[in-house]
Nucleic acid binder design. Structure first.
Length: 115
DNA sequence: TTGTTGACTCCCG
DNA sequence: CCGGGAGCCAACA
């Protein structure tokens, strides 16, 4: 129950949390990790999203880093796609490619798991 | 089993 | 705010 231990189904939890983010809003890896019960696993949230694809129906593009920026390890092609999707949903970007978290950050219902 | 890696975050300057 | 360094934990070889 309140184990909050990261189980092998970690990805599934990440996906569910990300799916709760409505269009026009964004969240951070740390936020998702916190909802999962472990703010330290922010890196694994990104890793889980990396494994996720369109078939998973996960709005991975709504997840950015704590600085309101799009972080990638080198393949910016997905970063540009992420930015395009967010702009299409009404999320404005800074000239430096940053999002105003103050305005678009989404709060999860209960901020805990399970929801 | 250990060691390396990483779509991160925090601290410092 | 930005950049660099250290820490974090699970997955992978």
């Amino acid at each position: 129950m309140e184990e909050r231990v990261v189980r092998p189904g970690f990805h599934a939890r990440v996906y569910d949390v990300v799916r709760k983010v409505p269009a026009g809003h964004v969240t951070t890896y740390g936020q998702v990790a916190t909802v999962l019960g472990s703010p330290r696993v922010a890196r694994h949230v990104g890793w889980a999203l990396a494994a996720c694809v369109a078939e998973d129906e996960v709005p991975w593009h709504r997840v950015i880093n704590s600085r309101g920026r799009i972080s990638f390890k080198g393949d910016t092609s997905r970063g540009e796609e992420q930015r395009r999707r967010l702009e299409d949903e009404g999320v404005a970007f800074d000239l430096k490619g940053r999002v105003d978290l103050k305005r678009y950050a989404w709060s999860f219902p209960g901020q805990s798991w399970p929801a």
